[in-house]
């Protein structure tokens, strides 16, 4: 029994069908529990007032925004090296989810920044990096949509994902160099979990678990759709040939 067995689309479809209901239930449980806990049952932080409640969506979304790209990088590599279709399709399925997470992280960050920093947007390294990540997601998705041949699209987007990862990393450091963090003081250290007291930390953990589960569930659902869409394409081509 090895991981590669799931590269077989049929095997993948069967297993994901079994896993999905469990995952969905877990996702709903974790997300509702975490968000409700965070929203209703946590105290206000000394310096932040009730805005501290925003971190229960901001931090998990930001985490998933980066992890989604990492997952795309790994699956793209697997596609390039071992040519498993499910892997390429999973990368495609993850991109819109990652895009949404990036958008959520950006928007909630802006809303939080207004009362805390006095501005919706500052060209802070972290914010800027996320904006650039957003652009990378857009380009990646647009390339998938533009190419008709699914195998060529998988190849080209994988190459783009590899090169894009290197440049995204470069941009991260370039941006740091460009503007050495106006806001690296106490305000942002809220992001670092060791500085957050347990009352905030525990619901945050539940929320992070919820977002991870949500991501996995959505990616599985979307990958199943992509596998089906691929089969539809194959059947249509076969009909045309006949």
């Amino acid at each position: 029994m090895s991981l590669w067995e799931y590269a077989n689309p049929q095997k993948f479809m069967r297993t994901s069908q079994m896993v999905l209901p469990v995952l969905t239930v877990l996702t709903v449980l974790c997300l509702t529990a975490g968000l409700l806990w965070g929203f209703f049952l946590t105290p206000e932080a000394v310096n932040f007032g009730s805005t501290v409640k925003i971190i229960y969506i901001h931090v998990p979304a930001a985490l998933m925004a980066i992890n989604a790209w990492l997952m795309m990088l790994v699956t793209s590599l697997i596609w390039l090296v071992r040519r498993h279709h499910v892997s390429a399709l999973a990368a495609r399925a993850a991109a819109p989810v990652g895009l949404t997470m990036t958008l959520i992280a950006l928007i909630t960050g802006a809303i939080w920044g207004q009362p805390m920093w006095g501005t919706y947007w500052a060209w802070d390294p972290r914010l800027t990096s996320f904006l650039i990540l957003f652009l990378f997601y857009l380009g990646y998705i647009a390339l998938w949509e533009a190419i008709e041949n699914p195998d060529a699209a998988a190849d080209l987007t994988s190459v783009l994902c590899l090169v894009g990862s290197v440049f995204a990393l470069l941009s991260r450091y370039a941006v740091n160099f460009w503007n050495q963090g106006l806001h690296q003081g106490a305000s942002l250290s809220l992001d670092k979990e060791e500085n957050v007291a347990d009352v905030f930390y525990l619901p945050l953990l539940v929320c992070i678990a919820g977002f991870v589960l949500l991501f996995i569930t959505l990616v599985l659902l979307r990958t199943r759709t992509e596998v089906r869409a691929r089969r539809v394409r194959a059947l249509i081509t076969r009909e045309r040939m006949a």
């Binding site: 857009l138 647009a142 390339l143 190419i147 080209l156 190459v159 090169v163 941009s171 370039a174 160099f177």
Partner: peptide, 27 residues
């Protein structure tokens, strides 16, 4: 090279290339 096979690749090309230009522009 990524967009060479596409009929309307011009706009897509800018969308792909501009984020890659960020570090060069900054430095």
């Amino acid at each position: 090279a990524l967009t060479v096979g596409l009929k309307r690749g011009g706009l897509l090309l800018s969308l792909l290339v501009l984020p890659l230009y960020v570090p060069t522009l900054i430095f």
